[in-house]
Nucleic acid binder design. Sequence first.
DNA 1: GCAAGAAGTGAATCAGGATTCATACTTTCA
DNA 2: TGAAAGTATGAATCCTGATTCACTTCTTGC
Lengths: 212, 212
Amino acid sequence: MAYRQTPERLARDQAQRLHILQLAHAQVVEGGFAQLTMQRLAKAADIATGTLYRHFSGKGELAAEVFCMASQREVDALKEVFAAQGSAVQRLRQGVERFAARAWDSRQLAWALIAEPVDPQVEEQRLRYREAYAELFAQVLREGCAAGEFSVQYPHLVAACFVGAISEVLVGPLSPQARAQRSEHEVDDDLKRVRATLVELFLGALGAREHA
Amino acid sequence: MAYRQTPERLARDQAQRLHILQLAHAQVVEGGFAQLTMQRLAKAADIATGTLYRHFSGKGELAAEVFCMASQREVDALKEVFAAQGSAVQRLRQGVERFAARAWDSRQLAWALIAEPVDPQVEEQRLRYREAYAELFAQVLREGCAAGEFSVQYPHLVAACFVGAISEVLVGPLSPQARAQRSEHEVDDDLKRVRATLVELFLGALGAREHA
DNA sequence: GCAAGAAGTGAATCAGGATTCATACTTTCA
DNA sequence: TGAAAGTATGAATCCTGATTCACTTCTTGC
C-alpha cells in the first residue's frame, strides 16, 4: 500500500497545483503566453516536465486555467464596482475607469488577456470572458433603463460595443511595440485621455452626458 | 546565358506570384489563416513547395501579404464611402453600415482579418490596418467637428473606440463557433440589430442622434 | 525492513509544418 | 547542338515545444 488519499496528501497536491498556476501566471505577467512553456515552467517550479502532467492534462488546459484565473479577477473587480451604490451612469463610469486603470497597471498581463495571439483553448476562454464582461455591462445598462436614466434597445449589443471600445483603445498603447516607444510619462497622459474619451463616449451614447 | 529578365518573363513571374496570392486568399476565405499552409498552397497552385520561396521569403511574408491585400480592399471600400457627399454624420453612418455588411457577407474572411489568432508578422499588419481604419474614422470625425456638426476632443481615440466596438460586436456572431449554432435567418436579424446598435451608439455619442 | 503502489524524473520521442537543397528540367545563345 | 545559367521539384531536414514512459525515489502498512 502506499500514498493513500489522506486529506493532507490531497491538500499538498492542491497546493502544488496552485503553486504551478501561480508560477505560470507569473510567466504570463512577465512575457505573455508566449513565455509560458512547459519546460520553462517546470524549471521555475523546480520539478520535472512530466510532473506537470500529473496536474494538467496538457498545456492547453494549463494555459486556459491561467487565463481564467487572471480574467476572473478582473471580472470580480468589475462586478464589485458595478455592485456599489449609485446611479447606473455613475457605476458605468467608475467601471470603465477601474477597468482602464487596472489594465494600465499591468500592461503585459492586460495585453495577454485582451489581445495576445493565443492557442485555441485559451482563445475559447477569452471569448467566454469577453462575454462575461459584456454581461456585466449589460446588466448595468438594464438597470439604468429600468431606472429611467437612459434608454437602450439592445443592452447586450451595446455592452459588447463597450467592451470592444475599451479593448481597442487600450490595446494600441498596451501592445509591446507601442510600449517600447513611449515614455512612462506619455503613457500616463495616454491613460488620462483614454479614460476621458471612454467615459465621454459611453455616457454620450446613452444621452447621459450631463449626469456624469 | 539564360533566362534573361525580358519583360514577358517578369510579367509571367508577377502573374504567378499574383496567382499564388489569390489562391492563398482563397484558402483564408475558406478556412482562415489556419488553413493556409505551404504544402496545401503549393498543391493548390500545382507547383512545388520550394517554388513558393522564389516569390516569398517565407510563410510570414506571404501570409502578411494576403492579409494586406484583403484589408486594403476593406480600407478602400470604407474610404470610398467616407469620400462621398454628405454630412460627416451621414457618412459615418454609411461607413458603419457598409463595414458591417461587408463583414457579414464574408464572415470567415472577416473573422480571419479581425480576430483569428495569427502569427506575429500578420498580427503586425493587423495592428497597422486597425490603425488605418481608425484614421479614416478620425478624419471624418475631424471634418464633422470642423463643420460644427459635433465636437470631439480626441478624434483619434474616439475613432479607435469605434473600430473596437465594430469589431467586437461583429466578432461574437462571426466566430466559427457562433456560426455553427445559429441559422441563416437568425444571423440576418443579428446583422440588423448590430447595425442599428452601432449607428445609434456612434451618433448618440456624438450628440448627433437626430441628424441621422 | 520490505513489498506494493504512488509520485517524480527528464531524456527521448513525437508532431506538424516550414524550410532547404541536390537534382532535374528549361531557356538562351554562340 | 551544347554549355551556361535560371527555374522547378519534393523528399529530406530542421525547428520548436509538447508529450511520453521506463526508471528512480518516495510513502505506507505490515
